[in-house]
Amino acid sequence: MNQVKWPLLIYAILAAVCIMGIGVAIAEKSLIGVFISIVAGIIVIGLGFKTKKRMRKEGKL
Rank of each mutant, 00 (worst) to 15 (best):
I45G: 01
I26H: 11
G46I: 04
I19W: 05
K50N: 07
E58C: 03
I10G: 00
F49N: 06
G33W: 01
I36T: 09
G33V: 04
I19A: 15
G33M: 04
V17C: 13
M55H: 09
K53N: 08
C18K: 02
R56D: 13
K50E: 05
A25R: 04
T51G: 00
L14P: 00
V24C: 10
S37M: 02
L9H: 05
N2Y: 07
F49S: 07
F49G: 09
I32E: 13
K5T: 01
I42A: 13
I43N: 00
L8S: 02
I26C: 11
K53F: 06
A12S: 11
V44E: 01
T51C: 08
M1A: 12
L31K: 13
G23K: 12
M1T: 09
V24W: 08
E58N: 11
I36V: 15
P7V: 03
Q3A: 11
R56H: 06
I38M: 05
V34Q: 03
L61R: 03
V17S: 12
K5N: 09
V39S: 05
G23N: 13
V34W: 00
L31H: 11
L9W: 04
K52E: 05
W6A: 07
T51W: 01
K29T: 14
I36F: 10
E28W: 15
C18H: 02
E58H: 07
V44F: 04
A40S: 10
F49C: 08
C18S: 10
F35E: 10
F35C: 11
A40H: 03
L9S: 06
K53E: 07
R56I: 12
I43Y: 04
W6Y: 06
V39G: 02
K50G: 06
G23V: 14
A40C: 07
L9T: 10
L47G: 05
V34N: 02
I32M: 15
T51H: 03
R54W: 11
V17D: 10
V4I: 07
I10W: 00
L31R: 13
K57H: 09
Y11D: 00
A15S: 14
A15R: 01
I38C: 06
I43P: 00
L9I: 07
I45C: 05
I22V: 15
L8C: 02
P7Y: 01
S37N: 06
A25V: 11
L47A: 09
V4G: 03
A16I: 13
P7F: 01
S37A: 14
A16H: 06
A16N: 08
G33Y: 02
M1Y: 12
R56G: 03
A40R: 02
A15N: 05
V24K: 12
E28V: 12
V44K: 01
I43K: 00
W6M: 08
K5S: 03
S30C: 14
M55V: 02
G21C: 10
S37C: 06
K57N: 08
L8M: 05
I22Y: 04
K57V: 10
P7W: 00
R56P: 00
F35L: 14
I19M: 14
K53L: 08
G41T: 03
F35W: 08
E28F: 15
K57I: 09
K50F: 09
P7I: 02
F35I: 14
V4W: 05
G23S: 14
L61E: 11
V34F: 02
G48D: 05
K5A: 04
K57L: 10
V34H: 01
A16Q: 10
K5M: 09
A40Y: 02
K60E: 12
K50C: 04
I45Y: 01
